[in-house]
Design a protein around this nucleic acid. Structure first.
Lengths: 172, 172
DNA sequence: AAAGATTGACAGATCAATCTTG
DNA sequence: CAAGATTGATCTGTCAATCTTT
């Protein structure tokens, strides 16, 4: 059952089903592998890592919490918990930010920057092993294009904001 | 920093970086969206849903726990916890299976089958909206091929077993 | 003792309040 | 009161034992 072709609720063709199942398998295995690598080599999970990357990419290594949450694709709550952990480790600090709105901003500390620089090479190596070197150049291109189309369909709000950095080659 | 091209630890080119970042964004948004849909419409998470699908696809709707864990890409522990929840809901039962090894087998109940049949259309609709209909046919094909190559690089063990069902068009 | 499976303790994520400030 | 942010309760997943059967 499931995904078997029929007529009323539009089912998938066998080919569509196969490619969909392949994507599902990707979604279940790759994040787990990346998390495992980061946990093992850097004692960070993906989300925490991307929080550090987001701060590194920001002017002066400072970003309001809300903006950082959008960048890292997390809820305000999730970010708050994560930043609390990163703060405990000394890699991030929170400051009441003086400008517009008296908002809270997260700041990357020198120790946090060092941590990120130490963690990056291993992570990039894993990215190569699992994805970049596992595909032909044209396959990687096609994957990237498909991913951008899917993200745009999944979260139109996000894609406008986040995909901007997928246009310019910038840290991610 | 991060992913910026350099020489010693092999970094990524700007194009590779962009496509890699697009994949990362996909990995962070799509599972969340699928989970949200299942949670909202069926009070199930992706893993539980795939456990039900795995049982539905099995002969007589019965599968030893270990095999089911491999099918659903989860650890024995994770499956055990998940099946406990599904059992509480009346959708799955566990039986000591008489054959080889006195192992435990999970069985899909009639109520579980009904649950799955009710949940599937909404889930397929979401799969279409986010992925299948968001891509041109050639894009979906390319995505599927890339996903299979990545899974093979990520977990060679898994791919042998699981990718078999990605060859024959079969329930997934 | 090895394989199959479960358990309980802990870490992380979500959700629904809650608090604060403009 | 609306936006930004945090908190605590609850649920899920992971990890390290543990138990059972062959």
């Amino acid at each position: 059952m499931m995904y078997v072709m029929s007529e009323e609720p539009r089912w998938l063709t066998p080919d569509q089903l196969r490619d969909w199942a392949s994507l599902i398998t990707l979604l279940m295995t790759v994040p787990a592998a990346l998390d495992a690598q980061l946990k093992r080599d850097a004692s960070l999970n993906m989300f925490e890592y991307h929080v550090l990357v987001g701060l590194e990419a920001a002017p002066n290594h400072v970003l309001p919490m809300t903006d950082l949450a959008i960048y890292a694709n997390g809820s305000p709550s999730r970010l708050s918990h994560a930043v609390a952990r990163l703060e405990r480790a000394g890699w991030v600090e929170r400051h009441a930010c003086a400008e517009a709105g008296r908002r809270t901003a997260a700041v990357l500390t020198p120790a946090g920057l060092k941590k990120l620089q130490e963690s990056a090479p291993d992570h990039v190596r894993e990215a190569r092993r699992l994805v970049v070197d596992a595909l032909r150049p044209d396959q990687l291109k096609a994957l990237g294009a498909a991913a951008r189309a899917i993200v745009a369909a999944t979260d139109p709000t996000l894609s406008e904001y986040v995909l901007r950095r997928l246009k310019d080659p910038e840290p991610a």
